[in-house]
């Protein structure tokens, strides 16, 4: 496996508070899940990688440049149709109308929502909106998909459906980098776990050993607290 992301001494300080503390990390697995307690800096790390935040120090190196897309915990839907929401991302990338429509339609079909393509996106349920957000990201055919707690605000049925779609996107060859609170979900999706605590990257382990035998005390405590 080749390294596709190398982070070196990455830090973010905001208003005197250190949010990310000299994180050093290389990613080479295809499916990566970042775990950690609330406020550990998981979302912030993802945003730094995606370029939504500027680091206070350190550097992020991409051995080959990867096209990215990101899906957020709360999907943001424009006040237009489902189809137009999916098309919007393609429009920004400069696709022509016909091509846009075709790709958006296909993407909606893959998340199982082609039958509501003409519906106003804002009136859908939370689960449906998240699937539209996934279709919007997928339509861009990113080489890296970043997901920040994509199922945190969803009911179990919707969660399962979203998980199935993430799995399919990964199966199409897209690299996955996501955070979740759901340990079961982490087990099912991840190849490799990045564990982060109080802004520091504490350990990075393959998924099996992480759940059976975490290397650090912090990770052990976290697993104990999170497992019912």
């Amino acid at each position: 496996m080749t390294v596709w992301l190398a982070i070196d001494g990455l830090g973010l300080i905001e208003g005197g508070t250190t949010i990310i503390d000299s994180a050093t990390l290389t990613l080479s697995a295809q499916r990566n899940v970042v775990l950690g307690p609330n406020g550990a800096g998981k979302s912030t790390l993802l945003r730094l990688i995606h370029g939504l935040l500027h680091p206070s120090g350190g550097r992020i190196a991409w051995p080959t440049s990867l096209s990215q897309a990101m899906v957020f915990q709360r999907p943001v839907m424009l006040r237009t149709t489902v189809l137009a929401n999916v098309e919007y991302g393609l429009k920004l990338k400069g696709y022509a109308t016909a091509e846009r429509r075709r790709r958006a339609g296909e993407s909606l079909a893959r998340v199982g929502l082609e039958h509501i393509a003409a519906r106003p996106a804002r009136l859908l349920s939370g689960g449906e909106q998240q699937r539209v957000a996934l279709a919007r990201a997928w339509a861009l055919e990113p080489e890296l998909l970043i997901l920040d707690e994509p199922t945190a605000s969803l009911d179990p049925a919707s969660s399962r459906e979203v998980e199935r779609i993430i799995d399919e996107i990964a199966a199409s060859g897209t690299r996955i980098l996501m955070t979740t609170h759901n340990l079961g979900q982490a087990k099912r999706i991840a190849e490799e776990i990045v564990f982060i605590d109080r802004g520091r990257i504490v350990e990075q382990t393959a998924v099996e050993p992480f759940f059976t035998l975490p290397q650090t005390e912090a990770a052990q405590r976290f697993l104990q607290e999170e497992t019912p």
Partner: peptide, 20 residues
């Protein structure tokens, strides 16, 4: 975040938000 993630420039974002 969503608009910047999708690659919207600031003027493009302004236009999108005006419509939205």
């Amino acid at each position: 975040e969503q608009l910047r993630s999708l690659g919207a420039s600031r003027s493009r974002a302004a236009a999108t938000l005006l419509w939205d």
